[in-house]
Amino acid sequence: MSKALNNFEIIAKVDNVTKSFGEVVAVSDASFSIEKGKITGFLGPNGAGKTTSIKMILGLIRPQKGRISLFGKNPFYNSRIKQLIGYIPEVEAFPKWMKARDYFYWLGRFQLTKKEAIQRTDEVLEEIGLLDVSHKRIRKFSKGMKQRMKIGQSLLHKPALIIGDEPFNGLDPVVRKKMFDLFKDYARKYNSTFFISSHILFEIEKISETVILMYKGRTIAQGSPIRIREMIDDQPHSIQITVKDSKKLSTLLINNANKEVVSQIKFQKDVRSNEDQLVVLTNEPREFYSLVTDLVCDHEIPILEIKATDEGLQNLYKSLTIG
């Protein structure tokens, strides 16, 4: 065992791991590590192999090839190290009958004494803002509340490593910010390490100190969120605008922007509302947003929605994997 592992500076290590389900290869020769005391983001599109990797780190499934060590042990066969981990599953994992307070108390009892479990149940319910509804059954909660319950149960025993599989799904921006702060608080107060998966860069770059990129089952890059953002900014950005008068806006864009700001425009219909949409490809997103703001104000064009698609990230994945 390396010295680093003895000091637990590297909490989890994934070495050339492969896992397939039938003919589908979920994870292919992936390697990365989780460093102690850091909040690590695990970024990749849906189906990239993030959940499979997480389940292997947790010891819920076994790799076919390669090796995984968690606190220097094989997580599939060692239950004791699970005293040190908290897990936020992607899916809803609630016994249908449980009330919020029972859920925390009984899960907490696997790691805590009765007194500690009672105390921590109240503390965590307070931290996630659900103390007032703790007597209600979880199945009656909204999606956002259920998500907070999933986060809360992972924090009960102040674990050394918290692994979250898309933990911010379904949270509104205010609660999401609160959860970011809560994670940072745990990292500071209890020296907890976080490993957070997401397919949204925005989430990851807000909270992480380091980011692991995964695509089609392979880890393709690891670095600081700033560096990842720079790499994405180098890729063409795709911006989708839902607008009442798409022809007028497209004409204005073509006449007022150079090739870097607007390199391509596509017309399409929104599948739900049947409204006109423009999909603009730009290499200068900041200048583009500034230009669009000026144009819609000066010419009074009603914009229904404007959003960046995931294509910047997708292009980065492609450029990193294709080379």
């Binding site: 819920l60 239950s79 699970k82 981990i85 599953p89 994992a93 609630f94 899960l107 790691q111």
Partner: peptide, 17 residues
């Protein structure tokens, strides 16, 4: 327990399978 995924939460706790 398998279909509501509560088994996932039990088995990531320090209880032997």
């Amino acid at each position: 327990e398998i279909s509501d995924h509560s088994i996932d939460l039990y088995l990531v706790r320090p209880i032997k399978r």
